[in-house]
């Protein structure tokens, strides 16, 4: 049985209309569904707006004010805080300390924790126990960690006691109050806390590399050093970069807490970083506008540093 052309065209038209109707219905259904999903994100968006974007904008706004604390009214002063910051020797001194801390801590910690992570990824005997041990420093709260190191490094602490007991009494010093040693110890304490944690993260990434890759390299005569730096590193280069970037940001923005508890920025500002200076000016000197101008500089340096690190460690194969 055959259909007339007009009837065929009519039925096609009807079918098209039907299809259009179904598509329109589907689109409406999708829009309704998407709107439903979007509505569910509103609380998160609102909280993100008020608790992340709001404070970020507030940092910029406050940096243009003279504000002495929560009970005072902020007064707009234009670029005055920035002029003060950039002409303040304390700011530049803190910049120097920050640079030393970042340039020493970030590379040393990232490289050492990568190497340790490689070792852990080989699943050595007692590897599980090793992971737990490596994680322990990260589980210790900052005040406890600080008390622990103060007990070691105080003038009458464990380290000086050991040195004296082995006849090296002349080497004893107030490690955290000596301008020559205080910053080194702050960096060492951060290394102590960070290496194990980062090593476990690296081991998780390196453990995902096909073992046959390493086996093939081993057959070709590659030792651990070659396998670590000529195979594992190139494969996980972008991950290495992300870890370096995170360490950079933690160091740049988060060093104030350790410094506050160990040295309070002293002696003689020898351990005052930009992060600590921000805290000091806001909470101890009641110069909140100044402190937020330092905060803006920190954000700028943080963004620039992130860009450089990500560029350096871009995956290139």
């Amino acid at each position: 049985m055959s259909l007339l052309p007009g009837a065929v065209a009519g039925s096609r038209l009807a079918a098209d209309e039907q299809a259009d109707g179904r598509a329109a219905h589907n689109r409406r259904r999708l829009v309704r569904r998407d709107l439903g999903f979007a509505t569910m994100t509103v609380p998160a968006l609102v909280s993100f707006f008020f608790f992340t974007i709001g404070p970020l904008i507030a940092v910029f706004y406050v940096s243009f004010t003279d504000w002495q604390g929560i009970l005072s009214r902020p007064k707009l002063v234009g670029w005055k805080n920035y002029a003060k910051v950039f002409s303040d020797p304390t700011f530049w001194g803190a910049g120097q300390v920050t640079a030393i801390q970042v340039l020493v801590l970030v590379p040393v910690l990232t490289v050492l924790s990568f190497m340790l992570g490689y070792f852990v990824s080989l699943k050595p005997r007692f590897g599980g126990l090793l992971k737990v041990i490596l994680f322990i420093p990260a589980l210790i709260s900052l005040p406890v960690k600080s008390m622990f190191f103060i007990a070691i490094l105080a003038p009458t602490g464990i380290l000086n006691g050991l040195l004296t007991s082995v006849g090296l009494g002349d080497w004893t010093t107030a490690w955290l109050a000596n301008p020559q040693t205080a910053l080194a110890w702050v960096i060492l304490v951060d290394l102590w806390q960070g290496i194990g944690f980062n090593a476990v993260l690296f081991s998780a990434r390196l453990g995902a590399i096909d073992p046959e890759t390493f086996a093939a390299a081993e057959l070709d005569g590659a030792g651990h050093w070659q396998r670590m730096w000529l195979i594992a590193y190139p494969i996980s280069k972008s991950y290495f970069g992300v870890m370096a970037m995170l360490q950079f940001l933690w160091t740049l923005f988060g060093s104030a807490a350790t410094i506050l508890l160990l040295t309070n920025g002293g002696p003689d500002r020898a351990t005052t970083t930009w992060s600590f200076l921000l805290y000091y000016k806001a909470f101890l000197s009641y110069q909140i506008g100044y402190s937020q101008a330092v905060g803006v500089v920190l954000i700028a340096v943080g963004l620039a540093g992130m860009a450089v690190i990500l560029r350096l460690f871009r995956q290139d194969y």
Binding site: F49, F50, I53, G54, I57, Y61, L71, P74
Partner: peptide
């Protein structure tokens, strides 16, 4: 709008 909200919060604090 964000700036106004922040300014309002800040001035409210005082």
């Amino acid at each position: 709008a964000v700036g106004v909200a922040v300014a309002t919060i800040l001035t409210g604090c005082a």
